[in-house]
Simulated assay, not measured.
Amino acid sequence: MKTNSLEQLGFNSNIYSTHSQLNREEWARVIAEHKERYLVQNEEGTFEAEIMGHLRFTAEDRTDFPMVGDWVQIMPFDEGKALIQQVLYRQNILKRQAIGKDGEAQYIASNIDKAFIVFSANRDFNLNRVERFVVLCYDANITPLLILSKADLVSQEDLHEMQLQILERFPELEVLTTKIDDEACIQELKLKIEQDKTYCFLGSSGVGKSTLVNLLLGEDKMLTLEIGTGTNRGKHTTTHRELSVMKDGGVLIDNPGMREVGMTSSSDAMEDAFPLIMELSEQCKFSDCTHQHEKGCAVIEAVHEGEISEEAYENFLKLNREQEHYASSEADKRKKGKSLAKMVKTVKQHKERF
């Protein structure tokens, strides 16, 4: 694996200023993770890394451990091996609710500037699902950009209709289309990538994320598999998250396909994703309006008048319920954790006394 400068990996003076007492060789970026074993890279090379014992034993939850995209402090101890001493810099975290685990989050990657949300125009385009990814991005203060891949596999009329639906539902969302073996589409996408920024690819399996990453990198780094013509379904071609650097600058993170996109979002993310509904909610008769059955609800009235589509309204209610359920489950887990910690402390004090 080639070596990149810290700047090519996304390093800048703002990041350095957070721990300016460290030498450059102590800084590294996490480029891959495999069950608490990591690959980190800096100007000295790429290292297989593990976290130091004190970091493992003082960690309170998953956020205290490194993740792909993090800047960490390392201590090389053998050829190609290093210990991770601490997480140095993490501006944001992209996350979703862990599948089948209430109140738990799955952390996707960190320090991301923009997310490319990829949907295949010929098979999995769904506005409600787009909305879920958009909310995830807004929750992490990440700018989303929608890519409709394989646009040459649908008619121009169908593609135009998709674009109109997107514009109506997400008027501020930037949209690009890509076609198979169309170099002009890749060049247009490259123009969206800045040298010192980090970009991640999100979407279902088989929508073409890894193919796009390979084309941007100029090499077949990510495994891709063809889609079966019978089922028209994608396969999990990316099995882990990996960070790569483009030849002309720009950092890319490919992710495994997501079948489920559970919400962990804050109220601010919902406001960003549903600006019209949030604006109208201020006109509701009751300040605690749930926008479901109350008389004098400006949101319900807008739905009846056709100002808000029924589909967007129903998806808003569903995502809001998921967000509230996650927040409630997370609060219960924190409460139980505090109670357990208090009990352990009491037992320890009792033993010391006797």
Rank of each mutant, 00 (worst) to 15 (best):
Y199Q: 03
L319D: 03
S149D: 02
S120G: 03
I227L: 04
Q156Y: 09
H236K: 09
H293P: 03
H291M: 07
E104Q: 14
F11P: 00
R56K: 11
K348A: 11
A269D: 00
F116Q: 03
V251Q: 11
E282P: 00
F201G: 02
V175C: 09
H19Q: 09
S210K: 00
N232T: 04
L280R: 00
A327P: 04
A49W: 11
Y199A: 06
Q349A: 15
G262H: 06
F286E: 01
E282S: 14
V130N: 01
R90M: 12
E282L: 10
E226Q: 08
K2H: 12
E330G: 00
I147K: 01
A331C: 06
E324H: 10
L340R: 09
K338I: 14
G257T: 01
E352M: 07
K333G: 00
G53A: 06
D196W: 13
R129Q: 07
V251N: 03
M343Q: 14
L276S: 04
G53V: 00
Q323G: 08
E219N: 07
L83R: 12
H350L: 15
R90P: 07
F170D: 04
I300H: 01
K190S: 14
S328Y: 11
D268N: 09
S5Y: 02
L146P: 05
E322N: 05
I193H: 07
K95P: 01
I147R: 01
A49S: 04
E194L: 14
L216Q: 01
E43S: 12
F133C: 02
E311Q: 14
S265E: 11
H160E: 15
G100V: 04
G45W: 08
V72P: 04
Q73I: 10
Y89L: 10
Q195G: 08
G306A: 05
D61C: 06
P76H: 05
M258C: 02
H291L: 07
Q292C: 14
G337A: 13
L217T: 04
A331E: 15
E43N: 05
G228F: 05
R90N: 14
L146W: 08
I74T: 02
R96T: 07
K295D: 15
E44R: 12
D70M: 08
T143S: 12
L215D: 08
G228T: 11
K192R: 14
E36C: 13
R29S: 08
K345M: 12
E352Q: 10
V135S: 04
A151L: 07
V213G: 00
A59I: 00
T46F: 12
E260S: 10
C297A: 04
I99G: 05
V154M: 07
Q85F: 13
W71H: 07
R24Y: 13
E311H: 10
E219F: 08
K221I: 10
E7M: 11
E36L: 14
S328C: 09
V251K: 10
G203C: 03
E226M: 12
L9I: 05
Q21C: 05
Q283C: 03
V299D: 00
M162S: 06
E322C: 00
E260V: 08
A49M: 05
L216F: 06
L191N: 13
K285S: 04
H325D: 15
E260T: 09
F354A: 10
I74E: 06
V40T: 07
